[in-house]
Deep mutational scan, measured.
Amino acid sequence: EYSEEELKTHISKGTLGKFTVPMLKEACRAYGLKSGLKKQELLEALTKHFQD
């Protein structure tokens, strides 16, 4: 599980793409985000969540 700060850091540095799909799905579930099946959809959901 990833902390909010850790995820925000990866988003701001542009390194969230280094996460694997299972890692991204886990992060989306942890924050109650609707997650797609594609890596890009997962990245967009997390990025949008933490930028709002």
Score class of each variant (00 low, 15 high):
Cys28Glu: 00
Lys48Ser: 11
Lys8His: 05
Arg29Met: 13
Glu1Met: 05
Glu4His: 07
Ser12Phe: 12
Glu6Tyr: 09
Thr9Val: 12
Lys38Glu: 14
Val21His: 01
His49Leu: 02
Tyr31Asn: 10
Gln51Asp: 09
Lys38Pro: 08
Lys34Phe: 06
Met23Trp: 10
Leu7Ala: 08
Ala30Thr: 03
Leu16Cys: 00
Thr20Arg: 04
Gln40Pro: 07
Gln51Leu: 02
Asp52Ala: 06
Glu5Val: 10
Gln40Met: 14
Glu44Gly: 09
Gln40Glu: 15
Leu46Asn: 01
Thr15Ile: 04
Lys39Ile: 01
Ile11Ser: 02
Ile11Glu: 00
Gln40Ser: 15
Tyr31Ile: 08
Arg29Pro: 04
Thr15Leu: 05
Leu37Phe: 09
Lys34Ser: 11
Phe19Pro: 10
Thr9Trp: 10
Glu1Lys: 15
Leu46Cys: 01
Tyr31Leu: 10
Leu43Tyr: 02
Lys25Glu: 13
Gly14Ser: 07
Glu4Cys: 10
Leu37Ile: 15
Lys25Tyr: 03
Ala30Gly: 07
Cys28Gly: 05
Lys48Val: 10
Lys39Gln: 08
Lys39Gly: 03
Leu24Phe: 01
Leu43Val: 15
Pro22Trp: 06
Pro22Arg: 12
Leu33Arg: 00
Ser35Leu: 10
Glu1Leu: 15
Cys28His: 04
Glu6Trp: 12
Ala45Tyr: 01
His10Ile: 08
Phe50Thr: 01
Glu44Phe: 09
Glu6Ser: 14
Glu26Gln: 15
His49Arg: 08
Glu5Leu: 10
Ile11Gly: 01
Ser35Ile: 13
Ala27Arg: 01
Arg29Phe: 09
Gln40Trp: 10
Gly36Asp: 15
Tyr31Arg: 09
Tyr2Lys: 08
Lys34Val: 10
Lys13Asn: 15
Leu7Pro: 02
Thr47Trp: 03
Lys13Cys: 13
Ala45Asp: 04
Cys28Tyr: 00
Thr20Gly: 09
Phe19Val: 07
Glu44Ser: 10
Asp52Arg: 11
Leu37Pro: 12
His49Asp: 00
Lys25Arg: 13
Leu43Ala: 08
Cys28Thr: 06
Glu5His: 09
Pro22Thr: 11
His10Met: 12
Thr15Gln: 09
Lys38Met: 08
Glu44Pro: 02
Ala27Lys: 06
Glu5Asp: 12
Thr20Trp: 00
Met23Asn: 01
Tyr31Ser: 03
Leu43Gly: 05
His49Gln: 06
Ser12Asn: 12
Leu24Val: 00
Lys39Arg: 10
Glu26Ala: 12
His49Lys: 05
Ala27Ile: 15
Glu44Asp: 14
Thr20Gln: 05
Lys34Cys: 12
Gly32Arg: 07
Tyr31Trp: 13
Leu33Val: 13
Glu26Gly: 10
Lys25Ile: 15
Asp52Thr: 09
Lys39Ala: 05
Ser35Arg: 06
Thr20Tyr: 00
Gly32Val: 00
Ala27Thr: 06
Arg29Asp: 14
Leu24His: 00
Lys18Val: 07
His49Asn: 04
Gly14Phe: 00
Thr20Asp: 12
Gly14Tyr: 01
Phe50Val: 08
Lys8Gln: 12
Ser12Thr: 13
Ser12Pro: 02
Lys34Glu: 13
Met23Ala: 12
Phe50Arg: 00
Gln51Tyr: 06
Glu44Tyr: 11
Glu6Ala: 14
Ala45Leu: 09
Ser12Gly: 11
Gly14Asp: 07
Lys13Ala: 12
Ser3Cys: 10
Lys25Leu: 08
Glu1His: 07
Leu43Met: 15
Gly17Leu: 09
Leu16Pro: 00
